Simulated scan of single mutants.
Amino acid sequence: MRPQARLQAAIEILDQVIEAAAHQGAAADTLVQRYFQTRRYAGSKDRAAVRELVYGAIRFTAERPYSGRAALIGWLESEAPDQLALFDGSAHAPSPVEPFETRARAILAPLWLEPAMRARFGEGFEAEARALTARAPLDLRVAPGADMDEVAAELGAVPVPGLPRALRLAEPRPLERHPLFEAGAVEVQDAGSQHVVAFAAARAGETVIDLCAGAGGKTLGLVADMCGEGRLIASDTDRTRLQAMGPRLMRARCDAVVEPRLLNPGREREALADLEGAADLVLVDAPCSGTGTWRRNPELRWRLTADRLARLTHVQARLIDLGAWLLKPGGRLVYAVCSVLAEEGTDQAQAAAARLGFALSGSRALTPLSDGYDGFFVARLDKPGETWLS
């Protein structure tokens, strides 16, 4: 592809991303893959170059742009103005840039959300917001049976301070066919997610419920901390994600320990009735805005609305109450969201403690700027009853 054609391809993909963001459609990564599936003539360098253009434009502005062309022109004017000369109207090239046509502006956070984020971060808002959309490293969780030093040397990775089984690669690379991945020695998992698992502190012999298990990333960490002893129920309302857990459990040799359980939305108690008051630990890794993962999914800024955030906080409160119902006296509920917003973090945990009569015994907020992780909030709520020995 000529450089001009790469620009036009980026514009076409960005148009699709903008449309998908407006209607909760496919993710940007999926749209990029689909685009090139029907354009076999594009080589690996072409695909990499177009992807760079697409994500550069997405990261540039937090407000959903008028068009893909407006997004790309705005970003290029700011970061690579020499490339605007390639908008020359030649074959497969964008038409020339007009002086007064619409351009995207550099915006760090959605305008409607900026007051809440400024209240959350204060004078550090701009630095935190930039860190939230910077490129993310690739973090790995090393299985207990694998040698950390050997894995690190093999992959050229470095340890993540404070997490005993976490490694980090400065540059992302495909690992799906690497022998270490196929053998279950490593799993891709952000260090923030690993911190949530460590905060939960699952123990051997416990009954543990991963209430919103998804594809099982945190489930695998909980199993490792339990040393394969006890009972772990991994539940979710998303059949596709829950099914994706199976191969991961088999690769990690945990399929005999974990009990996947599909739930019906709004009728979760029916499927979990046998576990009422039985759990030592319930992890509620709740659906959330994803504001803490903007550096991995920057187009999420174009998808989030005030109405959607309000619906999410309602779901979070309902799931916390469900988790509390599953706990035995003296059990602990660990609530986590990959969000940096107080509405989903501190406010939600404090409201739950007051509503349920639980003790809020600890919490932590993580951000890319302060911790080098995705943004997370995690809190522990203790149910009254027998004291859990810590």
Rank of each mutant, 00 (worst) to 15 (best):
L262F: 06
R34M: 13
L327Y: 02
A109P: 03
R130F: 04
P265C: 06
G292I: 00
E63N: 14
S361H: 02
I18G: 07
A244M: 02
G290N: 07
R120T: 09
R173C: 04
M226S: 03
T133A: 10
G145K: 05
M226A: 07
I320W: 07
L111V: 15
Y373S: 00
F60E: 09
E270G: 10
R168Y: 05
A5M: 06
P110S: 12
L309N: 12
L322V: 08
P94F: 12
P161K: 00
R103T: 03
L86A: 11
G277H: 09
L14C: 06
E19D: 07
H195E: 05
A306N: 13
E343V: 09
G156F: 13
V340I: 11
Q16E: 12
M117L: 15
P65L: 00
I13W: 13
H314A: 14
P384W: 04
G156M: 06
G345T: 07
S390F: 00
Q350T: 14
L76T: 11
R2G: 03
I18C: 05
A273W: 05
Y35W: 15
Y41H: 08
G192K: 01
A146H: 04
T240A: 15
R267I: 02
L272P: 14
E259R: 08
I209P: 08
R40M: 10
E98S: 07
L180D: 15
P94H: 13
A273M: 13
A26G: 03
R173A: 10
L283W: 04
D236P: 15
V334D: 10
I209V: 11
L140Y: 04
S95E: 13
G277C: 14
P94R: 14
A349P: 01
E19M: 03
P137G: 04
Y335L: 07
I107V: 05
R295E: 04
L360M: 06
L360W: 12
S78D: 15
R103P: 05
Y373C: 00
G277S: 12
A28P: 06
G331F: 09
A106H: 11
R64W: 06
Y66H: 12
R47G: 03
F377K: 04
A252T: 08
L319M: 09
L366W: 02
G156L: 10
R308A: 13
P115A: 05
P298D: 06
